[in-house]
Write a protein that binds this DNA or RNA. Sequence first.
DNA 1: CGGAACTTAGCACGATCGTTCGCGCTAAGT
DNA 2: ACTTAGCGCGAACGATCGTGCTAAGTTCCG
Lengths: 211, 211
Amino acid sequence: MTEGATSQRTRARQPRADGERTRAAILRAAASLATVDGLEGLSIGNLAAAIGMSKSGLYAHFGSKQELQLATVQEAGRIFAGEVVEPALAAPAGLAQLAAVCEAFFEHLQRRTFPGGCFFAGAALEVGTRPGPVKEAVAAFQSGFVDLIKGFAATAIELGELPAGEDPQRLAFELNGIILATDTNFVLHDDPAVLDLARQVVRRRLGLDGS
Amino acid sequence: MTEGATSQRTRARQPRADGERTRAAILRAAASLATVDGLEGLSIGNLAAAIGMSKSGLYAHFGSKQELQLATVQEAGRIFAGEVVEPALAAPAGLAQLAAVCEAFFEHLQRRTFPGGCFFAGAALEVGTRPGPVKEAVAAFQSGFVDLIKGFAATAIELGELPAGEDPQRLAFELNGIILATDTNFVLHDDPAVLDLARQVVRRRLGLDGS
DNA sequence: CGGAACTTAGCACGATCGTTCGCGCTAAGT
DNA sequence: ACTTAGCGCGAACGATCGTGCTAAGTTCCG
């Protein structure tokens, strides 16, 4: 607590260039593997074998499995932010951002960035009953995402693009539900038709259909 | 394949009374544990310790871990059918059944039947990427549940309780999403207020509010 | 009442789990 | 060019994983 991240006193450590590169490669593979085996089921041995290095060499990058899980969650958050959040923020404020965030998520699934669908959907249900830093990190990201949608909805209402009777929190909850249902059905049945159905539902719900 | 389930020739086996009782006790504990540790994370040792018997004694009831997982999914299906599906079927056909199935699910969560929320929500995302009999069993149950809701919706439309423009499949998808969002948020934040929000959303969506 | 099932426990196996240690190597700073 | 510190590997640890075998104990049928 007393020492900052870039403290000179404690000299925590100063990673080398190739070290950071392998660490990044580890985390990319870890995020993918975790969507298949889960954050707990992700084993050091499997992960090491997947990227072709030794268990101990990999383990040295993180002092414990929990640190690896924490870093994996952060990496998944970066990927999700780049593929889903940023495209949404690039759209015009209001209703367009609501549609964009859903569409970006559907493309995130369709592109099969992760073999197990959405990282956080699976992680949330897995770590939800296990108190600790990992659960806190996942919960924080999920809350942030819902708050983002809530903000989009509030702006859309202010701009008169949605009825004044709409409640941002309720709408954000519904869209979050549509997203979760899409992910669950897509993962379970591996059927791209699910994405078409989801797109129809979003258009209808946002009044972008026959209005 | 050639021998039936109740064949006399092969004399598959004839369980004893106390055997079935312990087997039932094992499966009840297994369903609960699986909502916390996952179907894969559920270990024979932990399960045996949880109900106070030996690993090998428990293992004898199922020839393999996969058989245990299969039986656990069926047990969870029985519990879900009793707590969610049956109350819904008891309501008047049509719109009332749609409202009842959602309310029964919310009470299923509130009653905390399982420590990890909805069994199938977690199981679907866990086994979705792992082909095999266990995934098939989970997928079949999930499809059956969505079809049930779809049937309720179709009846409600026929009875004129919902606009003719409604599509049963789309509505079933949306309600499934609301259910998944409720479970995810309830498990992650352990906040009963989520259930109130979900009830509001369902009432609004089904036109039971100010109409 | 006796014997044939079913039920449960004890023990042990190979594999894999997370974790630690020590040694060669290589990139970076002076 | 020489030093230094981060990097990666191999080997090994105690624990636990799923899975068998064997032998007691218990219930049920004739």
